[in-house]
Design a protein around this nucleic acid. Structure first.
Length: 580
RNA sequence: GUGCCCGUAGCUCAACUGGAUAGAGCACCAGCCUUCUAAGCUGGGGGUUACAGGUUCGAUUCCUGUCGGGCAUGCCA
């Protein structure tokens, strides 16, 4: 039978509250862990909350509450302190109990019911499949994957989704870029536009095409030039070029387009898979067009009177919903904008019945939020179900030296390169060492360091150390986790052991809080504290002592610790090495 | 110009949504291996939480303004 000290204290307080302030039963009773050990194991600010309502001295209220708190075998001391805090000191048995709970629950320890099975969708990365993922996408991937894990642990039914922008102008530009590179390989002489994709991977795709199909998609440079109207505006010029290419290639355009998409998407998927980032669904933008969902969404907006015509384009009146200007949904050339399909996409997400949808975007998209929310409301949907998380930028450093990156010139560091350089574990972990809304300086030298400066090694080392000790117990009467659960936990009595127990007991609450805040970094910080507690204990006390009962109790403790490390690592997507 | 994010120890960052004396790591100083992995531990100094007001029992947290940094402000995505 598992015992929850926090719930127990809450009950005691609730009963006391009923007799001190009978009308206030609906007040939320919060228990926090004091930063200072002298303030006990748990503290309640209930009296401070009541002071406001009852207009009475908080300290006096605290005294009255404390007097009414029933005696419990799990509580050693109840004390009023400070402005009116009620501090609780738990009996050792109330702290060590968690060891047994952890060993019994194993891989499930820490799972909670906050989400109560609600359906929640996390959409993340969703980079255009127009080139390799870069280090910024890596942060979104790491954050999104861990957040999804976290929400799942907190009791939500989570779906992970990648929105594939396989329609639209950017994909056309990629297809064009590939074809132009291919023409060059065929020997055609033409200038490669500066606003086409510059990366070498485009040339690679062109080579493949050339190797597989020879001259089949070749058209002369003259023929191409002949059907491209000149424009001083390089963007217009690019659009003209795309139109000309479609014209010349006919059916073949679709092949090249599809080929480029397939290649890039596969590259992206493999990259993410290798990074330990998995999706339940890859949702195609093109499918939104093919099934008529975009047109339907637009019709619905129009029917609701939120669309008007100006300068040959169709505009959504997003200013009516708090946006700073109205937005075009259909261009004067008849093509829908990205925004149009995104409206349809979000509508579709909500129609799939999720209780909550989370979009994880790069911080540069922040101006986009009001218009998406506006569109959902204009369609009569509940934009309260949408949460948008902005992930700030990443800059790479070699110690004090910044690694320069610019997407425009194609000089960006790819996620794959980063993973190869510092390893998946360090990548996943470093990305999570900051809150999402904090810009991240990623120190490559530190991530590669094989010493305690590197937090990921510090954590993994704790795990390896535990494994090493446990590996030496083969001869023990109690030598596996199930047996440890039978150990006499009353023998865990020194301060470090009890502190470690308290820390282990926090884990479920840490998960719940982190899930509520969409803050996977909190797990990383918790694990650092936990590892520190262990290293400290390990240096101060010998685990493999002669006394078998004592030894079993300590082994039970570190086996429980190992379990919590593993569960935490799993949420973060970091491996748990058995030796280092 | 306007909007969003940010400003905490010398450096990199936390702070349980308003709680007690603002905490870690790095760097610096002084220590700990004939005993379970020293990739570890112990101790020490270091702060007007950018600045100025306001809200209240109580503010790093909420509100207003100023300064500084990042991002955005496309019929790109």
């Amino acid at each position: 039978m598992s015992f929850n000290p926090q719930a127990h204290l809450r009950q005691l307080l609730s009963a006391a509250l009923a007799s001190v302030a009978p009308g206030q039963q609906d007040i939320a009773i919060l228990l926090e862990r004091p930063k200072q050990a002298s303030h006990g194991d748990f503290a309640s600010n209930l009296a401070l909350q009541l002071a406001k309502i009852l207009k009475a001295n908080p300290r006096e209220i605290a005294q009255r509450l404390a007097r009414e708190i029933a005696v419990s075998p799990w509580v050693d001391q109840v004390e009023v302190a400070g402005a009116g805090f009620i501090n609780f000191r738990l009996a050792p048995a109330a702290k060590t109990q968690v060891v047994r709970d952890i060993l019994e629950q194993g891989d499930a320890y820490g799972r909670g019911t906050l989400g109560s099975g609600q359906r929640i969708q996390v959409e993340f990365v969703s980079a255009n499949p127009t080139g390799p993922l870069h280090v910024g996408h890596g942060r979104s991937a790491s954050f999104g994957a861990s957040l999804a894990n976290l929400l799942s642990w907190a009791g939500y039914a989570v779906k992970r989704e990648y929105y594939v922008n396989d329609a639209g102008r950017q994909m056309d530009i990629l297809a064009l870029s590939t074809w132009l590179r291919y023409l060059a390989l065929c020997g055609e002489e033409l200038t490669f536009p500066p606003n086409c994709y510059q990366g070498d991977y485009v040339i690679d795709m062109a080579r493949q095409m050339h190797a597989a199909h020879g001259q089949r998609y070749r058209h002369s440079a003259e023929a191409l030039r002949a059907c491209v109207p000149q424009s001083a505006d390089i963007e217009v010029q690019l659009d003209n070029l795309i139109l000309a290419a479609k014209d010349l290639l006919g059916e073949d355009w679709a092949y090249i387009h599809q080929h480029a998409l397939t290649e890039q998407l596969a590259d992206c998927r493999t990259d993410l898979e290798e990074f330990g980032v998995h999706y339940d669904q890859w949702f195609s933008e093109r499918a939104l067009y093919d099934t008529g969902m975009v047109a339907q969404a637009m019709q619905r907006l129009e029917k609701n009177g939120h669309i008007y015509l100006q300068d040959g384009a169709k505009w959504f009146r997003s200013t009516a919903f708090g946006d700073e200007k109205d937005r075009v949904v259909q261009r004067d050339n008849g093509l829908y904008t990205y925004f149009a399909s995104d409206i349809a996409y979000h509508l579709n997400k909500l129609e799939r019945g999720f209780d909550k949808i989370i979009d994880i975007w790069g911080a540069d998209h922040h101006g986009y939020i009001p218009r998406v929310r506006g569109a959902l409301r204009a369609l009569g949907s509940d934009d309260g179900k949408l949460d948008v998380i902005l992930v700030q930028f990443v800059s790479l450093w070699h110690g004090k030296e910044k690694v320069s990156m610019s997407t425009r010139s194609g000089q960006f560091v790819t996620l794959r390169e980063l993973r190869a350089e510092v390893g998946n574990d360090a990548c996943r972990f470093f990305y999570l060492l900051r809150k999402a809304d904090q810009a991240l300086d990623f120190d490559l030298d530190l991530a590669k360091a094989q010493n305690s400066d590197n937090p990921v090694y510090y954590l993994q080392y704790a795990h390896a150390r535990v494994c090493s000790v446990l590996a030496q117990t083969a001869g023990d009467a109690l030598s596996n986790c199930a047996d440890y659960a039978a150990a006499d936990l009353a023998l865990l009595s020194n301060a470090r052991e009890l502190a470690l127990c308290s820390r282990l007991a926090e884990f479920p609450a840490v998960i719940e809080d982190a899930a509520r805040d969409y803050a996977p970094h909190a797990i990383a910080f918790y694990l650092k504290d936990l590892a520190a507690d262990f290293h400290s204990y390990y240096n101060a006390e010998r685990i493999l002592v002669e006394d078998t009962a004592q030894r079993s109790a300590r082994l039970a403790l570190i086996a429980a610790l190992r379990q919590v490390l593993r569960n935490g690592f799993r949420i973060l997507g970091v491996t748990a090495p058995e030796s280092m």
